[in-house]
Design a protein around this nucleic acid. Structure first.
Lengths: 184, 184
DNA sequence: CCATATATACTCACTCGGTGAGTATATATG
DNA sequence: CATATATACTCACCGAGTGAGTATATATGG
């Protein structure tokens, strides 16, 4: 009905996990990587990055061990666990957002990591996202149809969301050609 | 740079305040009104509504007093204070979001309450929103221009945002004709 | 006529999102 | 020699959001 829902698939979390798939790292470095590679896709403050990493650790998706350094402050070196790896690849192929914003954010992030770690599954990821968008469009259309005509503001909101989804469809079609994704 | 920022102008708060401008009410009723009138613009759970109202009270934007009822549980009847009224009308004319989502949400909400409480200021509200969008488009365009070409994912994200802003421009032009808003 | 659903009215405990400032040290720059 | 910048992380705080619980009254259906 709305967008303010928690999806449970917030992906700055998975993005951090995704960087750790490439090998061990630490908070500062992960935040740097994130910002340069995806800084215009998501925003992630440093303290928020550390907060997410702490959560991932308590959940058992990553493990930490302290490495003392001669001169600079000690690092907490982080490694992804088997469980974390499993969760990450599950998200990569299943995690789908429903609204305009999360499609842009999550889809791009998934595409980024798919290219890095599993380029063979790009067509699959692309297709399931596209299917999801089409089904959302369908749902919105019927919702709008059945909306009482006096609800002008609700209607305006839904209208714009519908138009945004169609825009995203075209934007994704563009991506298909850019990434040479074959139809499946 | 990103959208995840706190704007400080979160408007479910101001929407609740806006309903109280019409006269005193209580949590349950406000949530009902909100849901039927703006339920497809924003989503607001009942508990969240109460949480916001509590905050508004501690801030001094509304005042509460308990009214016992014969049979049903007691109500906390809420009234907007002079300060709250001031804050609300300031938001109505100044509160402007910068990204696609907040434009849709906040602009529609402002339009809704402007129609209810201050229809004469609609052209002003419309114009400042439109100006804001145009300036955002300008900023995005230069950002994209100066983005190093290897940053494909950042570029894709910014491209989509730009297209979304242009879409919103058209959607707003539609609204102008629907609401007979004169150019100023 | 009794069970169940729905409406009224609100509370609580919890997790997550997000910021801003602070701490401490090392190296580079003018 | 002072200052800025990079490294590396912590902390306190507030706001967003949910889900379930509490308590009572009326309407509805078999």
């Amino acid at each position: 009905m709305s967008e303010n829902k928690h999806s449970g698939n917030l992906s700055p979390e998975f993005a951090l996990l995704g960087f750790l798939v490439s090998g061990q790292s630490h908070g500062y470095d992960l935040h740097q990587k994130f910002t340069t590679e995806l800084g215009h896709v998501w925003h992630l403050s440093q303290s928020q990055a550390y907060a997410i990493l702490k959560r991932l650790e308590t959940r058992g998706d990553i493990s930490a061990h302290i490495v003392e350094q001669e001169k600079l402050p000690a690092r907490q070196v982080l490694r992804i666990t088997a469980q974390g790896r499993k969760r990450f690849f599950a998200w990569l192929e299943l995690g789908i957002g429903t609204n305009a914003r999360s499609i842009r954010l999550e889809f791009l992030t998934r595409l980024f990591f798919a290219q890095l770690h599993r380029s063979e599954s790009i067509p699959q990821i692309y297709k399931s996202q596209m299917d999801e968008i089409e089904s959302s469009i369908g749902k919105l259309e019927t919702l709008i149809e059945h909306l009482p005509p006096e609800q002008i503001f609700n209607r305006l909101s839904l209208d714009l969301r519908l138009q945004q989804l169609r825009l995203i469809q075209n934007w994704m079609a563009e991506i298909r050609t850019q990434f040479h994704i074959s139809r499946i």
